[in-house]
Design a protein around this nucleic acid. Structure first.
Lengths: 216, 216, 216, 216
DNA sequence: CATGAATGAGTTTTCATTCAT
DNA sequence: CATGAATGAAAACTCATTCAT
């Protein structure tokens, strides 16, 4: 027995709490992103898990709380990934272009996050508003653009009458829509804009548009 | 019992079947737009109606069919409204600007439609694909832009390497996001972009961006 | 078929709604009186019924509402039975004695009602307060005593400084406790006071006490 | 997790076992008196405690046992308080009046105890019967009245055909009901009998009634 | 054609209690 | 002796849908 117990836990036996919670959050993220808050079933989440339905309530109280935690984690993770992008070394307009391109790619790779945000918008951001964790996490998104603007407006490369928030709104709109509305857009107008080639071209068009909007 | 109460219907009346169906569609549109496909409750729809839950199934078979009919109606109505915009008389770039401005305003006034499209995207456009009514209705949206492009590219005002579909994608992204993501965007970054003044300014920025992207 | 259908319903087939509801109320009264609001199980109620659990929610919405309806019915029934007692023909003090004796007997026969009232007191009369049906039903209880007092105080047989409410309180206390606290009283002090003989004697003692308290 | 949070306990302390048990009993008394046996929640009791849910089971086995211990403690405490009343020095009828007045006041101050007794009656005194501790503790209540009767019947002040048990029953009924049924009585007939003034008057009426019933 | 009444199958959630050191 | 972590069983309640005229 001692022979089989490698360190302090493991084997067919009680996992450590943090791992169980992470496992549940992962499964819940999948289910909520796929089916929405109302469409997701706790029992389906449990089945994607190494634990039981009961443990979900044990760690997360109820469905709404679990959903909120999923949302918080999704925002936290996405902002952390974005933070890895280092723009400080680039000249302002080049930094801006880089940011747009990165965001375009990043959103494409982050469909579950995009879907969670869509779902949260359907719910009028009710759960987001309940979360105090998220406010702080989003500030960084704006700060990065504010830095570009400050630098660019100092040198005169960026027009003085545009705000970081407006630029963030533009970038978000174009990159978010590309993922969020692909199903209806594709159904209505065909998938030609969603081939790799077309997406690459769209990516540059979007970068051009935002840079043009910012340029003095 | 209470569950089935025929709400406000006067006693022995014969209702006009078409009117009853229209009444149901109106109520269903409200509920689906507000709560999504899974979030909406047939009994809540019935309560917003002059008839009963039973009649909803009588006329619309099941929840999914009702939802599909709501979606079809919403698309039909929105495209009909858009068709009233007459751009043929304007020079190409002016027509384009006019179209962007119109779309920006129109989407702002059409929140229920925007929400239905979001909801449909969450469901991977499954129901849209089932509907053959919609394909035809969307063609007109592209045709209008194609006309602008054809004219503009003939005179050299519009660059030759941009497609009507790309322009439609740009316009949609910016105008759609403005409505669809207002709850989360407002929660994360404040409501300053959603005052009347800021929206008017955003509207011109968006028009500028699209026109700039199209200009030769 | 016509041959087997006797009137307008019956056979192994849908009972009329009122009968189903009455059946549920009867079963629920038994269960709530026996086990309290929290102790009673909807599924146990359903089993004592000719219907299913689902129908209980169909007709009564939820457990609390069902309990409130049970309470209302119990009060209504008990007051209706009391109303059959006609005291108007008797001289005041004789009427009062008759009322006490009747109440003593009546409470002994109405253990389920007594238990429901005990249970409701544990719940701080929360559900009783929610019921507007009950206020009216209880007025009659006081009116009957008020009539006795008015008559007795006019003739000088009943002391002027006693109120109908006080008399009702005394009668209730003695007759209610006799039933409500029999289990603990019997356990603590033996059952000798609860033999038929002892109860008959107690009944007269109680009548004597109340009459003595009222006599001028 | 949150469910088990050890509330306000300071880190590495060794708690005194007797103190922990007393703490649990206090919290359990509050919860059981407020919500009944079925209505009380072990986790709510734990929250009112300096320890955890687990410790409740450790020290008290299960919910029923804990409830029985709460009941036993309540009876023990109440009888101990009553024992402090010394009636031996007073003439019999004066002693009786004193006892009634004391009981009236004492019950008013002992709502949790009254409620526990009601709850136990709802449960047909099942747990009281399981407790051998209680039989002994109640004998003293009767002994005190028996002493008054013996003295009073010897002097002829108290009628010979009344028993201590009957007197105890009368006193209990009037004093118990006053507290136990206040919620429903107040809801049905108003709170006028429960003002300080009205209670003082009722107290004397009750004393008069019992003394009159005992007097030869 | 139209409809009041009924319901099976699930869904979230609760709760006392035990596991394993 | 004491305890943090875990859980099976059952509870209330919901929901789209069908029954039977």
């Amino acid at each position: 027995m001692e022979e089989n117990a490698p360190s302090g836990r493991r084997s067919g036996w009680k996992q450590d709490p943090a791992a169980v919670q992470a496992d549940i959050l992962r499964a819940a993220t999948e289910e909520f992103a796929r089916n929405g808050l109302d469409g997701a079933r706790i029992s389906d989440i449990a089945e994607r898990t190494r634990t039981t339905k009961r443990m979900i309530f044990y760690y997360f109280q109820d469905k709404q709380t679990l959903y909120r935690r999923v949302l918080e984690e999704a925002y936290r993770k996405i902002r952390a990934e974005e933070a890895e992008l280092n723009l400080g070394a680039l000249p302002p307009l080049q930094a801006l272009r880089r940011l747009v391109e990165f965001t375009f790619d990043h959103h494409r790779r982050s469909e579950p996050f995009i879907r969670l945000v869509m779902i949260e918008n359907i719910h009028a951001a009710r759960h987001l508003r309940d979360s105090d964790l998220i406010a702080r996490v989003n500030d960084s998104a704006i700060e990065r653009i504010r830095d570009i603007c400050t630098r660019g407006q100092a040198t005169g490369e960026i027009r003085p009458d545009i705000t970081p928030l407006e630029l963030h709104w533009m970038i978000s709109a174009l990159c978010f829509f590309n993922v969020s509305n692909r199903p209806t857009f594709g159904t209505n107008f065909g998938d030609e804009l969603f081939t790799e080639q077309a997406q690459a071209r769209l990516r540059e068009r979007v970068a051009d548009m935002v840079v043009a909007a910012a340029r003095a």
